[in-house]
Design a protein around this nucleic acid. Structure first.
Lengths: 211, 211
DNA sequence: GTTTAAATTTTCATTTCTGACAGTTTATTG
DNA sequence: CAATAAACTGTCAGAAATGAAAATTTAAAC
């Protein structure tokens, strides 16, 4: 018996704007006023819908984690049933969109921010672990004989390359770095063929839901 | 005929404190007041000796570049004449000091900050290129037959791993990540043995001064 | 149209950060 | 000790950022 709530939409708009700012300016470089401008709302509305600065950061992290889950699903869905290595490289190191870059930069900002916002530390730790795990699953299709530990190392390395590609994109158009990153990632993947320890050749599915 | 100048020492103290702050809080997370506290000097002295905020950041970048040169020399000097791969891995991925971590984190902060401080963009671009080049030189000792392009990819990748190790150290004690990073770096290096295209087997020196 | 609750605007107080500079102290030289 | 230049202190004004909450408006339900 009152006005319909737009809290969900507004919250989304606000955090979306927050993310855009953070990717460009970092967490501490982003003022509430800046977010207000970016979202086209008044600063007081940020407070009304989301809360104070701490709440905002917490909400940003929460939303980021949530979106990462969906992104992970999309990613897994985009993987073919074989030759996933190539698909993986294409996905992360070819024609990366601005959104993809933003995703990575925000993750870095959040990780860097755990000292200032200890509340998000646990989440980001989980997030990274899960990211690596998703890559492991994908890698497993092409390299079923490699050990979990080996795949994990490689996945960890690919995440690093991915991070660096987007970080360095600030220095030059990232096309140059993309190819370096891609080739290095390819090397890591290929290295799994060499060790190829004896293992269950279970090429089953990779559809076990992550996270 | 006047009081002796301590500008050099003070400047050093100030920028040292700045660096410590930046490694922990990022550039924008670091206020001049904070630096003053960290250095035990009054804020007005930061201004007196170095300048306003922009000058401070510029000076930080300058000093960072300068110190990187020296660090590069130390690094090269610490390299044996053979089996440099192992030495490289030990240097960057084993028992890394807090200073080493700080160096890396500050570099990341500076790179992330090029949007806000365009004046440092060129420097950081150079810095990264040189870092990669130094690693290339070292790698060349163990892999003289690999192509320049291949060594470059691998060096680029190792820098990425190094960056990520120290970034993620914020999430957990970095010992766990160190071993992941090291092993991934090892994979990259080993991958150079495979391609081994035909090349001049010049195992000469690596002592050409970098930078 | 009245009620009602949510959304939005406005405003105010407080704190923090920065820039600027006047004034003071300190150490050296002659 | 007088002169001098550098180092240092203290303070102020203005800007920017944040927190908080009192009005006001808006859209639905009745």
């Amino acid at each position: 018996m009152a006005r319909p709530s737009v809290k969900a939409e507004r919250t989304e708009e606000i955090l979306e704007a927050f993310e855009r700012c953070v990717a460009r300016l970092g967490i501490e470089g982003t003022t509430l006023e800046r977010i207000a401008e970016e979202s086209g709302l008044r600063r007081s509305l940020l407070r009304y819908h989301v809360g104070n600065r701490d709440k905002m950061v917490q909400a940003l992290a929460d939303r980021y984690i949530k979106n990462s889950r969906e992104e992970a699903r999309r990613f897994l869905a985009a993987m073919p049933s074989s030759n996933t290595s190539l698909a993986l490289l294409d996905y992360f190191f070819t024609d990366t969109s601005d959104e993809e870059r933003r995703r990575v930069l925000v993750a870095q900002a959040l990780v860097s921010g755990v000292d200032l916002y200890p509340a998000i530390k646990e989440q980001m730790t989980q997030w990274h672990r899960n990211f690596v795990l998703v890559l492991c699953q994908v890698i497993r299709v092409d390299y079923p004989d490699a050990s979990d530990a080996d795949r994990n190392e490689v996945a960890w390395g690919i995440v690093s390359l991915l991070f660096n590609v987007q970080l360095l994109a600030a220095l030059s158009s990232n096309e140059e770095f993309l190819s370096d990153g891609r080739r290095a990632a390819d090397r890591l993947l290929k290295s799994l063929a060499s060790d190829a320890s004896e293992k269950s050749s279970a090429t089953e599915v990779l559809l076990e839901e992550p996270f």
